[in-house]
């Protein structure tokens, strides 16, 4: 059982790692543009709402957030172990509960945007 659980979180880590490696640099460029005051057209209130209202947009946003959240949770668990905090069961519980909350919150927000 423990092995099966590990395989599940590890595969989420691996898929999430590939997805973030592919998409996050572009995402960071977009945030950089916003922060210097050049908000791209697609992120106007109307366009951003329309995108998150469409099923394709919802699926895209949920997929990206779901994988990022679980990737980060699993890797943070390893980091806490690596920097000497040897309380793996506790840290894993805290991080995976947070990840589950983040996943639920994502679903709730996407459900609310209609």
């Amino acid at each position: 059982m423990a092995i099966a659980k590990k395989a599940l979180v590890w595969s989420l880590f691996a898929v999430g790692g590939t997805m973030t490696a592919l998409l996050f640099p572009a995402l960071m460029v977009i945030f950089l543009l916003i922060s210097v005051g050049h908000v791209p057209d697609g992120l106007s209130f109307g366009n951003a709402t329309a995108f998150s209202q469409s099923w394709l947009g919802k699926m895209f946003l949920f997929g990206v957030l779901f994988l990022s959240i679980w990737h980060a949770a699993h890797r943070l668990r390893v980091i806490f172990h690596d920097i000497g905090l040897r309380a793996d069961t506790f840290m894993a519980s805290v991080l995976y509960v947070l990840a589950a909350l983040g996943t639920l919150l994502t679903a709730y927000f996407l459900w609310t945007i209609r």
């Binding site: 973030t20 990022s68 980060a72």
Partner: peptide, 12 residues
Amino acid sequence: CVLVAVYCVLIL
């Protein structure tokens, strides 16, 4: 992954 976590919070 700390950066990934920060951007998750930002997107949320």
